[in-house]
């Protein structure tokens, strides 16, 4: 790796100051599991890395049934899936956190880092879209909030401007009858990049037989993680049945524009979108009904 400077910021202001001064020659270090590999392989360039793990606001999570979840951007993944309350309230988020790399990666990697790396195949982003998370961004001119669905702009690129830093992710409170699921398809069962990822959130009616509202996010099917907004809207009012899930899968497939690469041919990706959306919907509905579901790698239980 080329010679580089390291600074551990103690506050958001300090981090913003360092990032603003160095512009695109400064890179944020959270868990480091992407940025260190990219710097080593010359995929990204930097003269300064700003470690943000020592900023209290960026580490940790606070959950409140009324206000929802605030997740520090550099909180390591393991803290999410080890927290029973978070797993119950934001299960798609927990699903994603549990399968980003292996345990060694999850000890370090963060959801904020996964988001800021802005890979089209990122596991957490479809889950964040499904949970309707919002990004709290600090910058030289103060703070702003951006929906996760609007955060990524191109492969590896996002809305963060010079000097800006993702501070927290905010999740709305969760009510009765809600459920969510993130599923990804990979040829192996672990340690792989999504061929397709699908995050789904549903809210059922009081009888729990009809979908009142739904949100779907997709990974690895477009240059950025894709909010399947039309499909979510279509689902509202539909019976929570296998036929509905399958049609939603079909509709999601029509939105996807995947590429062919070493991870999969495009035609296969397109097919898998349908399969995963169908399965993830079934899983989310089960959870909304209070059914505990298994952790088979590709959601084959459905």
């Amino acid at each position: 790796m080329k010679d580089i400077e390291y600074a551990a910021a103690r506050s958001v202001d300090e981090a913003v100051g360092l990032l603003a001064a160095r512009g695109d020659k400064a890179r944020i270090l959270a868990g480091g599991t992407d940025i260190l590999v990219q710097l080593r392989e010359g995929l990204r360039d930097a003269d300064l890395i700003v470690d943000v793990k020592k900023i209290p606001e960026l580490v940790g999570l606070s959950h409140d049934a009324k206000r929802g979840l605030r997740l520090g951007a550099s909180t390591p993944c393991y803290r999410i899936y080890r927290d029973a309350k978070i797993c119950a309230a934001y299960p798609a988020l927990a699903d994603a956190a549990r399968i980003i790399g292996g345990w060694q990666i999850q000890s370090r990697a963060s959801i904020g880092g996964n988001l800021c790396n802005s890979s089209p195949a990122a596991d957490s982003i479809p889950a964040l879209i499904a949970h309707d998370a919002r990004c709290v961004i600090a910058g030289p001119s103060g703070r702003r909030t951006v929906p996760v669905a609007e955060f990524c702009t191109a492969p590896g690129r996002n809305v963060l401007a010079r000097g800006e830093l993702l501070v927290t992710l905010e999740f709305p409170p969760v009510g009765d009858g809600e459920g969510a699921r993130y599923l990804r398809f990979i040829p192996r069962n672990e340690m792989d990049i999504a061929v397709v990822g699908a995050g789904v959130w549903v809210k059922l009616n009081a009888a729990k037989d009809t979908i009142a509202a739904a949100r779907i996010g997709l990974a690895a099917v477009a240059p950025t993680p894709l909010p399947a907004t039309e499909v979510g809207a279509w689902l509202a009012g539909k019976p929570a049945t296998a036929a509905t899930f399958a049609e939603a899968g079909d509709r999601a497939r029509r939105l996807a524009k995947p590429i062919s690469d070493m991870r999969s041919p495009a035609e296969y990706r397109l097919h898998i979108v349908g399969v995963l959306v169908t399965r993830a919907l079934a899983g989310a509905v089960d959870r909304a009904r209070g059914i505990v579901i298994g952790h088979s790698p590709n959601g084959q239980e459905h």
Binding site: P187, R188, N189, E190, M191, D192, I193
Partner: peptide, 28 residues
Amino acid sequence: LNEEYFYDDSGRMRNASYLDYRMPTAFD
């Protein structure tokens, strides 16, 4: 089941890492 040298049209291997070469893990 999964391992292969994946080449692009210019003769470059596109999956020269353990991540994308996909050797079996214990969980497979």
